[in-house]
Every structure is written in C-alpha cells, then in structure tokens.
Amino acid sequence: MDPSLSEMVTQGANRVGQRGEATPTAAIGFVSAVILTVVALRARRSRIRVGVAVVAVLACAIPGLSIIEGRRADSPTRAALAAAVIERFRSEVEGFSDAHGCAVVVKSTCSACDPIVDFALATSHTCGSPAAIILGPDALTAGCTDARGTLMCGNGASP
C-alpha cells in the first residue's frame, strides 16, 4: 500500500493523479476552452449550449473518476484498509500519550505522520516531562513499540 497511502495523506485532496505524473492535459484543456468559447459564441439556442456542456462534462469526468474508483488508496476497494492503517497509527500514538500523561515528537522522518500525530495529540494535556515519540520513514504502516518510555514507530526509527 505504501507509498500510495503516504501520497494519499499528503496530496490526496490536492489533485486526483499522483505527484510527478506527466500532465499533458493542460494544453488540451486550453484548446478545448478556446473551441468551446467559439461554439458558445456562435450558438444561438440554449439547447446547443446544453448539448456541448453535457458532452464535455461526461467525457472529461471519466479519466479522473476512474482513477478515484480504481487506483488511489482511497478507492472503494482499498479505502477500508487505508483507514484501518491510519486508525491503528492514531490509536497507538494517542494511547501512548494518554499512558504517559503527554507526549511529543522528538524526531520524524515520516511527513505523512505529522498531521496524524497532531490529530492524535489534540486531546492530550501538557505536562512537565512529555514522553518522546520517534517516527521512522515507514512509521505509518510498520507499527509502533513502546521502548522504555519512548514510542518507536517504523522499522527505520532510531534515536
């Protein structure tokens, strides 16, 4: 599932395709906008405009919707698994913080984990000596262990 799960957490709501994928559609889109404008300017009946718009809407929605429904980590077949992984990580961090009064991330190499940790620690209180959390690059999927009062998440986590 990783790295598409991390990609989903960090970029999933900002675009439909993956980061770094070639995007040749901008030029096609611009040419389409020009053609559409010309058609609209020449069309006298609103029915023609409706026809142009319906065809454009349906044709253009297919590539994006097929990615959402099939390829992404939040697609219907994979969403439950992605949510379970996120939920497990959140409950591990929150449980650790509750058990030690409060906790703070002292080292993180997992960018997708940062907002989840903020979400997990939102209900915890501040305390005099917060317990340490260390997040390795695969912290989200690899799970956490409580090592003498320090939560080590991911196989690559090191003090």
Partner: peptide, 30 residues
C-alpha cells in the same frame, strides 16, 4: 493555467468555467 485545465482533477469544470466566462463577457447579450 496548468491547474485549471487538468482534466483528471477537474473534469470539464475548468474548461467550461473559463470558456463560459469568456463567452459571456465577450458577448453578454447572447
């Protein structure tokens, strides 16, 4: 421009929005 006309994210909304806006502003009586 690259974001507005990215089909996979926006479908036809960017194209129709910009095309429609241009058509309406150029020829408002239509």
């Amino acid at each position: 421009l690259a974001h507005m006309f990215e089909f996979r994210s926006w479908g036809a909304l960017g194209v129709l929005g910009v095309g429609g806006m241009a058509a309406v502003i150029i020829k408002p009586r239509s």
